[in-house]
Design a binder for these strands. Structure first.
Lengths: 96, 96
DNA sequence: TTGACATTCAAGTGTTTACTTGAATAAATG
DNA sequence: CATTTATTCAAGTAAACACTTGAATGTCAA
């Protein structure tokens, strides 16, 4: 659910009411989800007349993506080396 | 918790027992977490003698990072345009 | 000011989650 | 073969979560 809200906000900003209608839950429910997303720094709420514009924060997304990307690279490197070692071991096993 | 397991696996592979000791929960608990991570395609388990090597799957991480990165770029672009528009509006407001 | 609308605050509820203990399975080791 | 070690399967429980309804707050518009 929370993830789906993020997906939707990635399309464009929305109001609490928009999100509630879209996901077919009460506005109170949406507001509660936004509380935790906001605490996590993923979204921000801006008063705008009597509605509130909910926006996804690019920086938070950026940090998460960065973390994952860095780890992915390390893993790929590591496993490509591991594969070499295993290949060597297999060969030794064959010839002995 | 699940995220922390992923973090730990990003360091190096581990056995179920390793993880249990490290996080101070029962091996059963770890095994259950691994069930869901495996279903989600984030880790894989390989029988190795009587232990099992748990490995983080680079490809899954890669996909998630890719999704985030793409969205982040779109958001930044969008908001930089929005900022320009708002700056223009502010100027008009001043001079009028 | 009054009414309508958008949102949040507060409190309650059923479902899901993150564990636990106890028993079963499967491989190494004496 | 019997024992030990690593893990999974099964079932139970307390805490967290994703909602809900009802009431309060704040803003626009007649």
């Amino acid at each position: 659910m929370r993830f789906t809200v993020v997906q939707r906000l990635a399309e464009s900003d929305a109001t609490v009411g928009d999100l509630a209608a879209m996901f077919d839950i009460t506005v109170q429910g949406v507001s509660q989800h936004l509380d935790v997303l906001e605490k996590a720094g993923l979204v921000s709420r801006h008063k705008e007349g009597r509605t509130r514009r909910v926006r996804l924060e690019p920086t938070a997304l950026s940090e998460a993506a960065g973390w994952m990307e860095a780890r992915r690279r390390r893993l790929e490197e590591r496993y490509s080396r591991l594969d070499e070692v295993l290949a060597d071991m297999a060969q030794e096993g064959d010839t002995r």
